[in-house]
Design a protein around this nucleic acid. Structure first.
Length: 184
DNA sequence: TAGGCCATCTGGTCCT
DNA sequence: AGGACCAGATGGCCTA
């Protein structure tokens, strides 16, 4: 049970608890006593629970999209939508994990949170950009006064590389940077 | 036990 | 029309 109170349940009625006489949910084996208006359905080989209690935001005054199809069809669409959302969030989390592994940080048992990952990544990019621009300035005399121009050329170089290669091949990109720093 | 972080559900909106 | 995206809500887990 949640130890801290995070607000009371709202009175919104979800689609899952709307009355529909011709819709019956398949009950998960072993969960014969459903609490409240919860029910479980089988989707993709796993049991998923439909909660009758209100979740999600309700915009005051927002007009509801007209719901078509019967409750069973809406339930199926909602479950499919939930599954897609889970997959989307899993992909997002995979991307976060890849980002964690890409940025240097002090190794601890505790993994970086999402906000820490984004903040560190931002700082890392800034630091690398500063280093690269410093290198290009060293190769290009009088370039100090054209920092913005150099940064712009750096970005153009990177975007061109992405268009040509389609993915981030760091060694190729660095060779571009190298030729750029040579004043080409 | 409070608070941070997270996964998940949900419905509205945007986009193709 | 349907999927992707977004953000609010909620509950679980963990730690100080």
């Amino acid at each position: 049970m949640k130890s801290k109170g995070k607000g009371s349940k709202r009175g919104r009625q979800s689609w899952a608890e709307q009355d529909d006489p011709d819709f019956t949910l398949e009950t998960e084996p072993g969960s014969s006593e459903q609490e409240g208006s919860e029910a479980s359905v089988r989707l993709g080989g796993t049991w998923r629970t439909l909660r009758g209690e209100g979740h999600g935001r309700t915009r005051v005054g927002a007009r509801r999209r007209r719901q078509h199809g019967n409750a069973k069809e809406r339930n199926v669409r909602r479950l499919e939508s939930n599954e897609r959302e889970r997959q989307r969030m899993h992909k997002l989390n995979n991307a976060f994990q890849a980002l964690r592994e890409a940025i240097p940080h002090v190794k601890t048992d505790k993994k970086l949170s999402k906000i820490e990952t984004l903040t560190l990544a931002k700082n890392y990019i800034k630091a690398l950009t500063t280093i690269i621009l410093g290198m290009s300035n060293a190769c290009l005399p009088h370039a100090e006064s054209h920092m913005e121009t150099n940064a712009s050329r750096l970005l153009q170089c990177y975007q061109q590389h992405l268009q040509e290669e389609g993915e981030e091949d760091l060694s190729n990109y660095l060779s571009h940077i190298h030729s750029f720093s040579q004043g080409s």
